[in-house]
Design a protein around this nucleic acid. Sequence first.
DNA 1: AATGAATGAGTGTTCATTCAT
DNA 2: TATGAATGAACACTCATTCAT
Lengths: 223, 223, 223, 223
Amino acid sequence: MSTPGTVESVVTDPKLVGERRQQIVSAATKLFSEQGYYSTTIQHIAREAGISVGLIYQYFRDKDDVLFLSLKLVLETYENEIPAALEGIDHPLERLCAAIGAYCRVVDKLREATVLTYRSTKSLRADRRIFIKDGEIRTNRLLEACLRACIAGGHLRPVNDHLLVYQYVLFAHAWALKQWALRDRYSLDEYVEEGIKLLVEPFLTDKGRAAMARFKRKQRRRD
Amino acid sequence: MSTPGTVESVVTDPKLVGERRQQIVSAATKLFSEQGYYSTTIQHIAREAGISVGLIYQYFRDKDDVLFLSLKLVLETYENEIPAALEGIDHPLERLCAAIGAYCRVVDKLREATVLTYRSTKSLRADRRIFIKDGEIRTNRLLEACLRACIAGGHLRPVNDHLLVYQYVLFAHAWALKQWALRDRYSLDEYVEEGIKLLVEPFLTDKGRAAMARFKRKQRRRD
Amino acid sequence: MSTPGTVESVVTDPKLVGERRQQIVSAATKLFSEQGYYSTTIQHIAREAGISVGLIYQYFRDKDDVLFLSLKLVLETYENEIPAALEGIDHPLERLCAAIGAYCRVVDKLREATVLTYRSTKSLRADRRIFIKDGEIRTNRLLEACLRACIAGGHLRPVNDHLLVYQYVLFAHAWALKQWALRDRYSLDEYVEEGIKLLVEPFLTDKGRAAMARFKRKQRRRD
Amino acid sequence: MSTPGTVESVVTDPKLVGERRQQIVSAATKLFSEQGYYSTTIQHIAREAGISVGLIYQYFRDKDDVLFLSLKLVLETYENEIPAALEGIDHPLERLCAAIGAYCRVVDKLREATVLTYRSTKSLRADRRIFIKDGEIRTNRLLEACLRACIAGGHLRPVNDHLLVYQYVLFAHAWALKQWALRDRYSLDEYVEEGIKLLVEPFLTDKGRAAMARFKRKQRRRD
DNA sequence: AATGAATGAGTGTTCATTCAT
DNA sequence: TATGAATGAACACTCATTCAT
């Protein structure tokens, strides 16, 4: 019937569509995150967004649509911000650490929305659920590429890269999922640093270790 | 009004209460896991359990109660089976590996219910949400004790034990949360083995490495 | 199908039937009076009566039956106690005053149940509603006979006896219906006395006034 | 939480709120009166009012709210129409008779709703029950003022005014409560006339009697 | 005669969705 | 475009009644 990644609108002016959708999704994400998908009503979203109930249905076909775009936005942020954080960085190890750090920082920014991903993906229509899962896989590939480059370059010893990437992802997500247990023990930067100690450094080769030391010195000088 | 960990019943016969509740919770867990809390109706649960709607309300005060007992059962399984798996094992390293393996095995058994934990805890009343969180913390402590014993015994080098325990937990949970990506690449046993390679072995001391080798030989002989 | 004034029972032993019904109706009247017919459940009644739910259905066909017998009991009390109070009294005026006093005293005894009469008669099946109304009319006739005797005997001047009897009834019922407004201003005896001043004495003939004075003297001596 | 005398609405347009509430209360009063509060369903009310179930909940918080507003309307009619009937009348005795007549006429107009007052006030939330009782007391005071003016002016001899006012109220209410016994014997006007004969005239002083005669002559000329 | 677990039709209430303005 | 009043299907929960023991 409809392509899974698209959302149709009654309104034609594309600029207006973009603005309104942003406004609605922003309100929806806030409420979905706070109270969950089913406890959030369309009337709540309308009030939070400062518009009328009817207007939401000019920009979204149904409530599922609103959730879908909310979740899609989270994934797109991952897919945009991680590559952006790697721009201009050449060394594979530095790229890997930057990617992990960027992932954690996006999670921090979209903390509630990330939790929403875990809670509400199953509330989506089946085809869209797959679309969201695919997005997650694409993000994983970004990390996987960094990790493999490190191994290929001899900076990390050969490991189960597929599984280690999942540990990176889970580590980042944990910052949102277990925030109640983590936030009063670590700052975001400390958390990233500790993560690298646990999930990157143990696999460094001698060559990798040397490179790592150099980056750290460089970074310290920057601060 | 009511203690958060208890659920009241109209029916007096304790044996019957136990049986019926088990029957209802079992049906509910299945449906909650498949469709989520809000999409599962009391009618569905009743039909799945092969009883009438009214009967559910003889054993549970409301729908929240049913969810609560479902989640509580998952936690109790963790809290019972992990210590049981450690019984008779003395060496700290072996205990740690056994605990991780046991955790993964419980997750495998309660795969759907574990996902439910992530999705639906927020649907609970506030006091019960805390009760469930406390259960998770208690489970974490079981792992933490194993890990610390390894470090204290000089089998693992000093690490951020608090954070590493979370990685163990996430690793186990991932078997349920990311099953769609993991199950056709690893058997459960392989998964546990790979996990130990990634999250335990890198931190072994020389002493620990020797002990580990011994266990593996012993285990290979057992198979 | 069934005669309106009767209630059938599964149990045959007539003595037991009488006892159990009394026990159930007594509990029911209390609860119906406190919370109304619809807010009182059969389970409440069973608990209050100290028996099982099923047992109620051995002595009553349905909930309507229980209400009916509760209301019938109130009427029967009126019909029994008012004539009893008149026994041995000869003078028409004294009989009228005694009847009014007796009515008020029964209302006082069955205060809650009398209110129930006003609230719940309409909840009965149509034929039984009429049966209850007839009971009320029979009670009225008791008063009417007293009043007419007074007029016939020349103690009261001719009045609209039909309507005045209603005022007597309402006056008595008011003791239950408006108890919140009356009980801290009058004792029951004062209330009756004031009622006679308002609703009997103004209609006394000279002959009646003389007789009345005599009774009052007699009564004062008795106290 | 909420002031007892107010009822909130989701709809903002005050004109519409007024109209719709009137429409709903009117349907509700009819059904509540016929079948009682608990036997009347929201579905019934919606059908009777010619609207949907959901709409009722845009104008009332719950079913209790609907009953409350229905009862409140009855009291407000009393409080408005009795003073209106006294307007332009100066003589205390004439005012008293006009008040009694007006009360009976309102009861006649709101016959069913008046019965509802007796049956269903107890179904209300406690604070609102008190609110309704207060309304009744206010109405009583209107009559009390008239009665006292008559006594103060020497038209009636001193009597227990508090209790006599209750007799007036009960007399008026009886027109609704006992309609099945009264309506085929008296027209409304005859009923009022007979009431005055029973509950006013017996207490007239000579001065009052003279005034009363004058009014009656005047009234007869008017007819 | 007595129990109380089991039933399921029926209720109040919510909320996604529509549509007249 | 935008509004928000209106709809009604769907749900959680209750409780009179039954029936196996």
